[in-house]
Computed example of a mutant assay.
Amino acid sequence: MLEQDQKMKEIVTTNEAVELLGVSKQTIYNYVKAGKLKLVYKDWQIDGTMRFYLEDLNLLKSQTVKPVGLTVLETANLLGVSKATIHQYIKNGKINASKVNFKGRQTVFIPEEEIENLKFSQKNASRKKSFFTKDLEFYLFGLYEIPNSNEKARIIELDETSDIVAKTNMGELLNKEELTSRGFRKAYEMKKASHSTKRGMISFQFPIPQSINAPIFGIIDSFYKYIGHQNMNLYLMNNSIKVEIKPIKLPYLDANIEQDFEILQNCLIDGKLSTRPGFIVFTSNQEQLTIFVKDSIKEKIKQIALDHHTGIEDITEKLLLMGLKEFEKNNSFND
């Protein structure tokens, strides 16, 4: 009798299972249907309730309680990069992670201290341009292809150490070694141009497309081919692509100009666009302002520009805007 009493204590009803797991009755039914929970009695309708062994429920509960740490998706969102980049970080040993049985499948979890260490290293990394490699062989979102085939790929991640992640038109993710060993080559050469002396920049913020053949990537290809890295900036910001280019008259095929002009117009942050037959014209909103300052002030501005890895004109404009905001807030000059 004692053995039978003990066995009865190890059996729970549907309502008790709901309370123990903290889920709805429908979820319990789904667990049974999916084979995640076994019934004590298959003819449970006689009792009017399903019954389960307590040890089975405890095992399921241990598998559905989230382990300590963050998933790959949570880590990617926190760091502002793609899931592919996090997988590459794990593969390359930049992040230590472990696989845990969670909700019935093997899931990667990353300790929070690992993420904090990576955030610290990113914060202290150089702010130099990092959307291309020094040898100009790889550039962010640039198009690559295998000659005499339909296979294509784009670089979807590129960091300051020149580590890359490429995505093929078949959805595969490749690192640099895999991309080159498969025979992928640049689909075009980036324009090698001297630094433009034209004033101002035209800025765009594009959503990141899912397809490597999306028109937005075609626009970025045109920037690379006709503007070059010396006269543009490209980086990821808030899960979007921020692009800044120098004023230019960009040649365009008549078949694409209407579609791409609409995309550019919708994603324009700063600057002006117009069209000419076979061209899209990009113009900045900047106008010349000439002032004279003490040489000591000029030296301070030059040093600030040097510290922030930018030009003296760009940093002067930023300082001027900061001063204007301060004046508008107080409506007076601070002596």
Rank of each mutant, 00 (worst) to 15 (best):
G218P: 01
G228E: 02
I219Q: 05
L268E: 04
I208G: 09
S194P: 07
Y252A: 07
N266R: 12
A193R: 07
I216Y: 00
I245E: 05
I227D: 06
A193M: 09
Q205F: 04
E262C: 06
Q210Y: 13
K246D: 06
R185H: 01
Q210V: 11
F223G: 15
F217S: 04
C267M: 05
I220T: 01
S222A: 11
Q265D: 07
S240A: 15
E189N: 15
D254N: 15
Y252I: 06
R199V: 09
H195E: 14
F204N: 13
Y224K: 09
Q210I: 13
L250M: 15
F204G: 13
F217K: 07
I241T: 02
Y226E: 15
N175R: 01
E177W: 00
I257E: 11
I248Q: 05
I202H: 01
N238A: 15
K198A: 10
M190N: 04
I248A: 06
Y235V: 10
L264P: 03
T197E: 09
I248D: 02
L174G: 03
M237L: 15
I202L: 05
L174P: 04
Q205L: 13
N233G: 10
D260N: 15
N238G: 08
P207R: 09
R182W: 01
F184Y: 15
K198Q: 13
E244V: 02
S222E: 09
N231M: 09
A193S: 14
